[in-house]
């Protein structure tokens, strides 16, 4: 457990030394959200109708950005071998990577959600639900992503393969997340949808690291 915390701490420290990666994901999220008003036109009702889905899609795409370097950098500099020999266990290493990915990408996206939501003319009453939905959905994506990154490690064009592998699996999170935000915008309870998102996250929490660990072992 102490070794696992040391690994997570090291991952976070490394992310802090390269803040540009987290910043790039946040900027990407805000910029993609800003493209919608240009494409659809500034009609407030049309934008508000589109906002929940646009928020989810932009956030998931932004969270995908740093995924292909998740294990790639460690495999190139030999760190991955040391991690596999560290006794932490491949699945626990994958879980630490997913946690670090969420803390350095998902969490900053959450903080930028009000900006993107305002640009999409989402009713301010639905912002807390939007942040909760994005928090759960990006957590789900971090877990799926760590499994995808482990599977595509060493594959030629792995960076292209990874989104093709991960995004279809993230569709349920988009459906429940967008439905939750839409319900909140209409003044209805978002809780049932958020609970379904939470169930997705709870299912992926043990399964995705196990899959990633098995994939790392095979390398």
């Amino acid at each position: 457990m102490s070794a696992w915390r040391a690994l997570l701490g090291r991952e976070l420290r490394l992310a802090l030394r390269h803040p540009a990666d987290s910043l790039a994901a946040v900027m990407f999220f805000v910029l993609v959200a800003a493209l919608f008003p240009f494409g659809i036109g500034p009609a407030p009702e049309a934008l508000a109708r589109l906002a929940p889905g646009a928020l989810l899609a932009s956030a998931l795409l932004a969270a995908l950005l740093p995924l292909d370097r998740l294990f790639g950098a460690d495999a190139e500099d030999g760190t991955l071998d040391q991690l596999l020999l560290s006794g932490i266990g491949p699945a626990a290493v994958a879980l630490a990577k997913a946690a670090a990915h969420w803390l350095t990408t998902g969490l900053p996206l959450l903080l930028a959600t009000p900006i993107a939501a305002a640009m999409l003319n989402l009713a301010p009453g639905a912002w807390p639900a939007a942040m909760a939905a994005l928090g759960l959905a990006t957590g789900f994506l971090s877990l799926l992503g760590v499994a995808g990154a482990a599977l595509t490690l060493g594959a030629r064009r792995g960076g292209v393969l990874l989104p093709l592998l991960v995004l279809p699996l993230a569709i349920p999170a988009v459906i429940f997340g967008a439905a939750g935000i839409e319900a909140a915008a209409a003044g209805l309870p978002a809780r049932p949808y958020l609970l379904l998102l939470g169930a997705l996250l709870a299912g992926a929490l043990p399964l995705a690291p196990l899959a990633a660990g098995a994939a790392l072992r095979v390398e």
């Binding site: 102490s2 070794a3 040391a6 690994l7 090291r10 420290r13 490394l14 030394r17 390269h18 190139e76 500099d77 030999g78 760190t79 071998d81 040391q82 560290s86 006794g87 932490i88």
Partner: peptide, 23 residues
Amino acid sequence: LSHQDSLKLALTARENLAFFARL
């Protein structure tokens, strides 16, 4: 000890070792 040095270039020499010292 592999052919690669298994170092994180952004971390200091001490920080690189500190993780393995924890292990």
